[in-house]
Each structure stands twice: as structure tokens, then as C-alpha cells.
Design a protein around this nucleic acid. Structure first.
Lengths: 215, 215
DNA sequence: CATTCTAGATCGAACGCTCATTCCATGTTA
DNA sequence: TAACATGGAATGAGCGTTCGATCTAGAATG
């Protein structure tokens, strides 16, 4: 386990977490957790401040001491959500055996994508990004950082296997790689009876084919 | 071009379209077109009946002569959206050369998935399905029919190539196949600068690997 | 240690607005 | 004339947000 970090958007690097325990930080976390619950159940626009405040165990007005408005809550969730992914990719890249770490995380990633609760919120976030420019900016910035991190990881893996790819090829491989995972999030909503024991090996095989691809 | 058809949910088969031109049908279509526009821009819960009625060029109250409530509009859009896909798969299966038809449609499908406007609404629909049981039921029923149709198509293709797969394997291949396409819908929102000229061939190659897969 | 002070935490009523929906008067068609 | 199409105001509920009143914990003071 790496120490807790977060992504510093201004300086574009990971920073150690100051592990805040102040009352304010606790309250903020309470609100965010409650909001995640509500957004999962009713969507961004369907969930009301009143609902969120009830779930967080405080008055509606009090929410506004910690967040400027409802959209700020959305942004905070999106940001923290994607920060967690950045930590994950950083962990993979800092492992001794990058390939092993990656393959291990693949199984983990598939499981997470196939969890309907997680997938539902992720889809809500992307759908919101498709029309809310503010959310779109956060989502796209973090996505770019993730892709860059994955590109570096993939370049290492491929180089060890004797391939020497240019950046455009690597970027395309990352696109298809990520698309496959994100596609699972949609599948788990559209089909609740996925036969995991057959689908997961097939999926992993397709991933391996992609990673070992020769032009 | 096949004649216009729609999917009869009760009898589980395609039916010829009665091509209605009555005033009521025209009005309904107007409302649905306006609603699609509004939902794209503001989401299901963000778009109001008043907005939709303005876009459709009629009064808010009049909407309720054609749809019981707002959710009925959502359902009608989802249903017609997915019916169009059912028509597409039926078209592929009825082609002389199924493999050729399929590969041609693949390029078409990639283009459609990479269009942010189309993708945005599809994601909105899936996100809504992840929490609205009524929408979920429509989405899942249609998805199942699509998968069955794709399974038949894929069985033909694979059989011609000397493979004889059992149903679970075929179902899994369909899952991964569809997941890849649906993943593109998310990618086109998260990354607006996808290099199509490199990504699409790589994506098609990955698809071919999947279709020619040997266990 | 006891008291006072103060700044932040917290509440919940209130505001202005918009929403989905209803309803009835009016217009249109056959 | 009868049946349907349409408009638009009315309704009541709920929304995001604001705001002033109260509470509380802990520093400052004596």
C-alpha cells in the first residue's frame, strides 16, 4: 500500500495527503458520502439538497457552509472519484513487476466495472459531463492524466516484450484498452445475467491480444 | 432497405409498421423529437415539460393529450431508440453475405458510437435505467433481443469458419463484442481528441481477433 | 478555577421560483 | 352538432438558496 496521496491539479503531480481530522473535513466527507448515495438512487438532478441533508444528518441550510451550491458537490464527488483512479495507476507504475501488477489489477478492475452500483454512478457522471461543461472539464482533465499514466505503463510493458511503439499507437492502444473496461460498466446495467465465469476469461484474453498486438 | 418494421413485445417478433399519418401520430412524433433534443441538452430530469412543449411548438397542457406523464415520454424514446437497433440487427441477419454485412455495419457502428450527441443520449438512458425500474425493464428486454439476434448471426459466421461453439461461449463473445462498442460511447465523451485514423483500425483488429477466437 | 467572550457550527423558517400536472374554455374539423 | 384538438391559466408541491437566530466549544481573562 502506498501512502495516501491526492493529485495536485495546479502543480500536476501527486501530493501526500494532510489527513485532516478537523470537524470541517469530517462534515464535508459526511456530505459527500450522503450525496453519493442520493445521486446513485435518483441521479444528479433527481436528488435534492433536502434529501442529501437528511442522509447526512444535518439541516439543508448547513450544507451551504461547506459547498457553494449543488454543482460544487457534484464536482467534488467527480474529482475525488477520479483522484482515486489516479492513485491506482500510480500504484501500478511503482510496482516492482509492472506487468504482474497490471494483470492483477485487471481482474480487480473488471470486478469493479461489473458492480452495478459503482457503474451506475460512473455512468451518471459521464452522462452529466456530456452536457455540463464544468463537469466535463474535470472529467476530461483527469481522463487525460490517466491515459498518460497508462501510456507510460504500457510502453514499459511493450518495450520489455521487444516492441517499440510510437506515441500515437500507444495512445490508440490505451483508448481501446480503456474502452473495453468502460464498456463493461454499460453491460452490467443492460444485462444483469452476465455469465462471469465465461465472459471474464474471454475478456482477459481479448485484453492480452491487444497488449501483445503486432502491427 | 427492408420495409419499416417494429418489434412486437407481446408476440416477440417483428411486425410491419402501419405508417400512421393521422394528426395524432404526427403530434406524437413532434413531441418525441423535441424531447430528444431537450434530454440531450439537459438530461431526463433537467428538461422540463415546458421546455419540451416550447421545442415541439405547442402548449404544456397539450403534451398530456399524448403522453400520460413525463416518464411515458422517456419510455417512448427509449423504446423507439432500441427498436431502431432491432431493425438494424434484423437487416444484417437477412443479408445474403452475413459476414460482409456485419463488417460493413461495424464501421457504421463505430462512427455512431463516436458521435458525442448520440452517445450522450445513450449514456443518459443507461444511467436512468440504473435507477428507474420502468426504464430498466424496457432497456433490458430490448438488450436481450439484440443479444439473441447477434448470437444467431455470430453462430452463422463462426460455423462457416469451422467453429462449433456452445451457447454460453457465443453469449460471452456477444457480451465482449457489445461491450467494446458501448465503451466507445464513453470514450467519446471523456476524450474529445481521439485519433480516429489509428484507433479505428486497432479497434477493428481487436474485434476480428474476438470473432476468430479459438479457445 | 470560574467566568466571559467570540467565532464558528448549526438550525429551520422563509423566499422566490419552477416544476409536473389539471382543468376548463375555446377553436377546429367532419 | 358532436367529437376532438389546443391553449393557457391555475394549483400545489417541491426545489435551491438565503438568512438571521441560536447554540457550543474553547480561548481569553481575571
Amino acid at each position: 500500500m502506498l501512502p495516501q496521496t491526492h493529485y495536485d491539479y495546479e502543480n500536476r503531480q501527486m501530493c501526500p495527503e494532510p489527513v485532516e481530522h478537523s470537524r470541517a473535513e469530517v462534515r464535508r466527507a459526511q456530505i459527500l458520502a450522503a450525496a453519493v448515495d442520493c445521486f446513485r438512487q435518483h441521479g444528479f438532478h433527481g436528488a435534492s439538497i433536502s434529501q442529501i441533508s437528511k442522509a447526512a444528518g444535518m439541516s439543508p441550510g448547513h450544507i451551504y457552509h461547506y459547498f457553494e451550491n449543488k454543482e460544487a458537490i457534484i464536482s467534488a464527488i467527480v474529482a475525488s472519484d477520479l483522484e482515486r483512479f489516479l492513485v491506482l495507476t500510480a500504484e501500478i507504475r511503482s510496482a516492482c513487476n509492472v506487468r504482474e501488477a497490471m494483470l492483477a489489477r485487471v481482474a480487480e478492475g473488471i470486478d469493479q466495472c461489473l458492480d452495478p452500483l459503482t457503474a451506475g454512478l460512473k455512468l451518471e457522471i459521464v452522462a452529466e459531463a456530456s452536457r455540463n461543461p464544468h463537469v466535463a472539464e474535470i472529467v476530461r482533465t483527469a481522463d487525460q492524466v490517466c491515459r498518460e499514466s497508462l501510456m507510460l505503463t504500457m510502453r514499459d510493458m511493450r518495450h520489455a516484450a521487444g516492441h517499440d511503439d510510437d506515441d500515437t499507437t500507444l495512445a490508440a492502444m490505451v483508448e481501446v484498452f480503456v474502452a473495453m473496461f468502460e464498456g463493461l460498466q454499460i453491460r452490467t446495467i443492460r444485462n444483469q445475467d452476465i455469465d462471469r465465469s465465461i465472459v471474464i476469461p474471454l475478456f482477459q484474453n481479448a485484453l492480452r491480444n491487444l497488449l501483445d498486438h503486432t502491427p
